[in-house]
Simulated scan of single mutants.
Amino acid sequence: MPIYGSTSWRPEALDAASSYVGLLHAEAESALEYMVKQTLENSVIVTKRHATHRVLLNALMHYKRHVYGLIPELKLIPTRRELERSPNAAVEIWDTHARSHYDRLLSSNHGAGVKYVEKLLHPLGIVVDRERFNKVASSSNVQEIADVDDIGSTDLQELVSLRGVAMHANLSAVATRLSRSNPTEVGARGQAAANFTVKLAMKIAKSAW
């Protein structure tokens, strides 16, 4: 790819960099959504076979807060303690109500920036930002499972920033934004963003299972 090994921007390198950033952002977004979907599905499998999994408990508690926010008088979901004691009830509520909510949440996700990561992971008990997670936890009775604040979300956010310019600005604006780095640095930043998604998946797997 022309952006690697280069120390200055040529027209063809700018085009390649824009495509690179856009495609990598799309892959990061897709990987994040797949990660969340698989984590939820695995928690349901564990619940069916063994005991109510804490990821599923968190997801149901967050969904409960969502439902009560819409219809406060609707007593649809039991308490966390009751669901913990009854895996069958947890699975039934997931299958009949909550699954479609999280399917919509994933299908309506259109980014890989920190705010999107938080929106998908905080309901599961995965801490991306401590202060904002605490607000979710206090309102929804979501309990912490893992803290991923230390694995480099800055790299991902920088990719998102580059993607915004590369996909939505004219060539002059792209050149101005990219000129703050050389081509090799942009490639390295993309690699760092990819590494973030790998570290995120590994940390969730280690903490949740």
Score class of each variant (00 low, 15 high):
Tyr116Gly: 03
Leu40Met: 08
Ile126Asp: 01
Arg81Glu: 15
Pro78Asp: 10
Ser108Phe: 07
Tyr34Leu: 14
Glu92Gln: 08
Leu106Pro: 02
Ile77Ser: 06
Tyr102Leu: 04
Glu73Ser: 15
Ile45Asp: 04
Ala90Phe: 05
Pro72Asp: 13
Ala51Gly: 02
Val128Ile: 07
Ile45Met: 05
His122Asp: 07
Arg104Cys: 11
Ala31Ser: 04
His97Thr: 07
Ala59Ser: 14
Leu106Asn: 05
Pro123Phe: 01
Pro123Glu: 01
Glu82Val: 09
Ile126Glu: 01
Ala31Gly: 00
Lys75Pro: 09
Lys119Tyr: 02
Pro78Asn: 13
Ser100Asn: 10
Tyr68Asp: 08
Pro87Asn: 11
Pro123Gly: 04
Arg99Ser: 13
Arg104Glu: 12
Asp103Asn: 15
Glu82Arg: 14
Tyr63Ser: 02
Glu29Thr: 12
Lys64Met: 02
Ser107Gln: 10
Asn58Ile: 09
Val91Phe: 03
His66Gly: 09
Thr47Asp: 05
Val44Thr: 04
His25Thr: 10
Gly111Met: 07
Pro78Glu: 13
Lys37Met: 08
Ser43Asn: 07
Leu124Gly: 01
Glu29Ile: 05
His53Gln: 05
Gly113Ala: 13
Glu73Ala: 14
Lys75Glu: 15
Leu74Asp: 12
Asn58Leu: 12
Gly69Trp: 13
Lys115Phe: 04
Ile77Lys: 05
His110Lys: 14
Gly125Asp: 03
Glu92Ile: 02
Val114Phe: 03
Glu92Asp: 07
Pro72Val: 15
Arg80Ala: 13
Leu106Trp: 01
Arg80Ser: 12
His110Asp: 09
Glu29Val: 06
Arg99Cys: 11
Gln38Lys: 15
Ala26Cys: 09
Tyr68Cys: 07
Glu41Ile: 02
Arg99Met: 11
Leu83Gln: 05
Val117Gln: 03
Val91Ile: 06
Thr39Val: 10
Leu32Tyr: 00
Ser100Pro: 03
Leu24Glu: 03
Thr52Val: 06
Glu82Cys: 06
Val46His: 05
Arg65Asp: 12
Val127Gln: 02
Tyr63Met: 02
Ser100Val: 11
Thr52Ile: 02
Thr96Asp: 10
Val128His: 00
Lys115Met: 07
Gln38Leu: 12
Glu33Thr: 06
His25Arg: 14
Leu23Thr: 05
Ala51Asp: 05
Lys64Asn: 02
Val67Lys: 07
Leu60Gly: 02
Met61Ile: 09
Asn42Pro: 03
Val46Ala: 06
Glu84Arg: 07
Pro123Asn: 04
Lys64Ser: 01
Lys75Gly: 11
His110Gln: 11
Ser30Asp: 08
Asn88Pro: 01
His110Arg: 15
Lys48Asn: 05
His53Cys: 04
Ala98Ser: 12
Ala89Ser: 14
Glu73Gly: 09
Glu29Cys: 06
Lys48Phe: 00
Asn42Arg: 12
Val67Met: 15
Leu70Ser: 12
Glu73His: 12
Leu83Ile: 08
Ala98Cys: 15
Tyr34His: 13
Asn109Ser: 14
Pro78Ser: 14
Tyr116Glu: 12
Gln38Val: 14
His53Arg: 04
Ser107Glu: 13
Leu60Tyr: 01
Gly69Leu: 11
Asn109His: 10
His50Met: 07
Gly111Phe: 04
His62Gly: 01
Asn88Asp: 09
Asp95Ala: 13
Leu105Pro: 00
Arg80Cys: 10
Leu83Cys: 09
